[in-house]
Design a protein around this nucleic acid. Sequence first.
RNA 1: GGGCGAAUAGCUCAGCUGGUCCAGAGCGCCUGCCUUACACGCAGGAUGUCGGGGGUUCGAAUCCCUCUUCGCCCACCA
Length: 961
Amino acid sequence: MTDTLPPQYNPASIEAELYQFWLDLGCFSPEVRPTHRLAATKAKSRRTGGPPVRRSARPPFVIMMPPPNVTSVLHMGHGLTYTVQDVLTRFQRMRGSPTLWLPGTDHAGIATQNVVEKQLAREGQTRFDLGRQAFEQRVWEFVNQTGDTIITQLKVIGSSADWSRTYFTLDEDLSGAVREVFVRLYEKGLVYRGKYIINWCPRCLTALSNEEAEKEEVDGRIWRLRYPLAVGEGFITVATTRPETMLGDTAVAVHPDDPRYRHLIGQRVRLPLADREIPIIADLAIDREFGTGAVKVTPAHDPLDFEIGQRHGLPAIDILTPEARLAETVPERFRGLDRFDGRKRVVEEFEALGLLEKVEPHRHGVGHCYRCETVVEPRLSDQWFVRMAPLAKPALQAYRDGRLRFIPERRGEEYANWMENIRDWCISRQLWWGHRIPVWYCDACGKTIVSRTDLTRCACGSVPRQDEDVLDTWFSSWLVTFSSLGWPERTEDLARYYPGSVLVTAPEILFFWVARMVMAGCEFMGDIPFHTVYLHGTVRDTQHRKMSKSLGNGIDPIEVVERYGADALRYTVIAGMAVGTDVILDPNDLETSFAPGRNFANKLWNMGRFILTNLSGPPDGEMGGRAGGPADRRTGGPETAAVQTPRSDARAKKGDAAAYGSSVRLSARPPVRPLAGPYPDTVTRAELGLADRWIIARCDAMVREATANYEKYRLNEAATSIYHFLWSDLADWYLEQVKPRLYGTQPGGDVARAVVARTFEIALQLLHPIMPFITDALWQRLPGRPVGATIMLAPWPRADRRASDLAAERDFALVQELVGAVRQIRAEYAVEPGKQVSLRISREHPAFVEEEGTIVRLAKLGHLSFGDPLPEPGANAVLQDGTALYIALGDLVDLRKECGRLGTEHGRLTRLIQGQRTKLGNEQFISRAPVEVVTREREKLASMEHQVAAIALKREQLGCG
RNA sequence: GGGCGAAUAGCUCAGCUGGUCCAGAGCGCCUGCCUUACACGCAGGAUGUCGGGGGUUCGAAUCCCUCUUCGCCCACCA
């Protein structure tokens, strides 16, 4: 790493190198991985042989990474979710927990198969041309070729996952777990095969689970069709949204108590077009209010109809081919028509026959394939299912008991609601890419054999055939909380890292994945797999549309990293995301969208440049800075930033390397004793000035706030409080305040350096989980860092009681108000930027005396004096504590303007005082409000009265009338 | 149809257990500054009936009701 720090932060110059450095240190692993670099340090002397493993008192912190699809490319949604996970991981790691963020990739059955099939299509082939084996081979080749892309990209954004443990859901181990689970569930009677209505995607040619068929509101139509009675005159009118299915009708159902139809029950109708007779039956499931109250029953193509059919022993006629064309079972003229063409044709014929009664617009939910968005077809089919109700019980109980909690909380109710109404899970897929169902059928003896191992011979001696289907992708993902740790083997990892801690993901896969993982954990491990489910928002564009490939409104995170750096990306999404809310970014204006992060990173960089070049003190041996004379800081330029300084020598002598993160050499793990708070141990309280005490107190407040917010998953608040401390407090005020001290033009340089170093370091550490690269780059350059130290393993700063200082906060606020007042006047009177003016302050407050230098400098004053303001015209202001200011401005002053300014202020305060008096005059308020509140309100009034009196006096002096 | 959430500055949103955060941030906008860390910057400034109405309370952006408008989840009304 070179030490030239250019004025513009260039993320590319540090990120890749730092990431590699972290990898080399092995610090993404929950176990200790001492490297040669570390072992070479004085850690050796402290330890007597053996690996430097230290058992932490804290329980491990484990996050399962939701495995991205193996063939996917990073999008902004990934950018968000993996950033959140990395922030939590880095936070916990620094707090001293053995931390495991376990990554993996998902074979993503349908998605991957679709991609490869598309490739084949371009070559004019289908998977059937290749055959099963060759096709699988082809997919493997594709996966091996592209599978690393997403992992590489995750690294680019700074993810500190333990890559050595990366799994793939089709790995041998995980496949073994899948088979084990299938067999166990089968043996328990929880897996069964049966013929039911499932969601069928006519494009992917496979069954889907209920969750995979996404309901979407569609503007459709509802047709009323007349079915003539078989005997005599008349007809019964049914209502349908899918007229083509009438070709498969096997009954018409009405409610048994419906007076309109009661007399028709038991009669038959002549089904038009199909020219079949079907019965009119009565069933309680019929809603009399809807449509005509008479329902056409198509058992092969509708779940409700299927149930009715079951109850009444109706035949089911499948009228569709797998591709959703009309099948052999319909009259010839319809055969081969696509379902939607068939629909048109059926309606036309009904109309021609005079049997179309009415067409109405109708908005309703239609299922769409979650992978290709094709309208799914409810279809009667032989599939494998998992009985879910028994599995849901303990998973629901865990939530009810409070053992499993959700953030935001309301998501818990969605979870519970789903669990309570859970339906069986269709797990077989008519695909070739995935875990083949471990079931064999023997055609000779008719046996069905479910087996953990591949079966080559049936007990009867003949060769069985394996079920053609594969399992739902989610059937392997719901197991990863333990299968990725070696289950069903009883591995050390499993013992140590199960159950995990937090599951972070998007709400979209709450049911697909999260809920099922809880069920699997309860069933196979006897315990829930994590105690907290953190569901973050979605990344959307400025029109609040979800970012997606098809809409073309996506943002490529890698492009953002290339342009602004990973830290800018991370800070922007974290700061922009309150709990449970979405992140809005403008794909058309990356510059503006990521400005917060980019600007902040650059600010940090420059703060770092400034601080590092000044930590070594002024040149020419003016360490105390007591001798005057402006220091030429250029001689102590960036190149020397990382060299040892007297300060760091002092630290080294104290042997307190641990406090500066060099503990990495001792244990490669944060030390048990966390870094103390912002109070620098190298100075005594007596040496600290007002500004020093103020920034230390502010820093301490930030430590408390940010830590609490990290703990509460309020990452945006943690981010903004650190941002505010660094930018508004440290950079805008403290660094400006200490410049003369650092330059040696004022005494106290040593103290200033100690305070700057400590507070900056603490802020960097607190910020590290969010902006890992720049914080480590700067932190490592701070004086006294041993080779191989990283902020990643530095201990989490602790609040320090000695640091809080209400008096300092109050007094420095006064100084800030005063400087602000002067600046305001200067701006208002357009005083030339460089021009010095004189200020007179009515009150000799100790804070003003102590911070005189600051005030003079920051308010660009030539001279400051205390005493009654001069009676001559000048610019005036009154602070909240009643302190009056007077600035001599000569001809610039406009008396009327002054009177106007003061008059406005006077009026505003008078109104407030009025309100305040009314409030305090209210008996009810005095008696009912808490004493502290009343006291506070009284003080407020007193202060306002004081201020207004001072203003009145000032107006009198100016002769404002 | 059920359940839930949100409406705060031009834009995107914070505001966690009703009373110092006399309503905040970022971006944008206006004015002045290339002040020797940073123009991806510094200083100053403007903009809000906290969606409408009602209520509870000594006190409401914050709690309750209602209306309006968006959004989310679930659902076999064909």
